[in-house]
Amino acid sequence: MSEKITITIDGKTIETMAGHKILWAAMDSGIYIPHLCSARDNHSPSASCRLCFVEIEGYARPVTSCTEGAAEGMVISTRSQRVDRLVRTGFEMIISNHRIECRSCPRNRSCSLQQIAKERGLKLKPARLEKLNRNLPVDDSAQKVAHDPNKCVLCGLCVRACKEKGAGILGFSHRGFDRVITTFLGAPLGESGCDGCAACASACPVGSMTAKQ
């Protein structure tokens, strides 16, 4: 698995390791591919954000680059009509229930959604979809972190960070539109054994989990 190979992304020749995920091979060589849910050290990515699509020559349809390992001689393009359409729809669906208050958001200018919108020329307002505001209460009970579920994109990075570096108290609950990041029985963070490591806040790509000053 660790032999050196050469692949081509958007006409640029890149040396990488066989099996290395295309998303990270591209990111490492300065080619940006939108992504929210994947982490570099995650070997079984959930591919749930549906934003990191790429076209690979010889493949029938676009694939998620966070799950596709590189192979010798692959010719990849990060943009095509089909890719752009998938990414645009995926992004609009995520943004349609994301509370937009960039100006007062602590992650303004360091937000992955803003970056994706900028890179791909997408709008932070869903043009074709109705805006769905869940109006969930902001959990301000913990000492070190605050959780605003209205800004959550359900990428699961905080759940993973909490299990690996923190107390392991975060998880998903409920289903569909009601899905949220929560603690056991939905207890407030401050009463759930949160040790204040703020690993969730550094993992959060948007302004949902934020470290308190």
Partner: peptide, 12 residues
Amino acid sequence: IPAVDVYGIVTF
């Protein structure tokens, strides 16, 4: 496993 994982399944 963490209790929150069980809670996630029960609510799912």
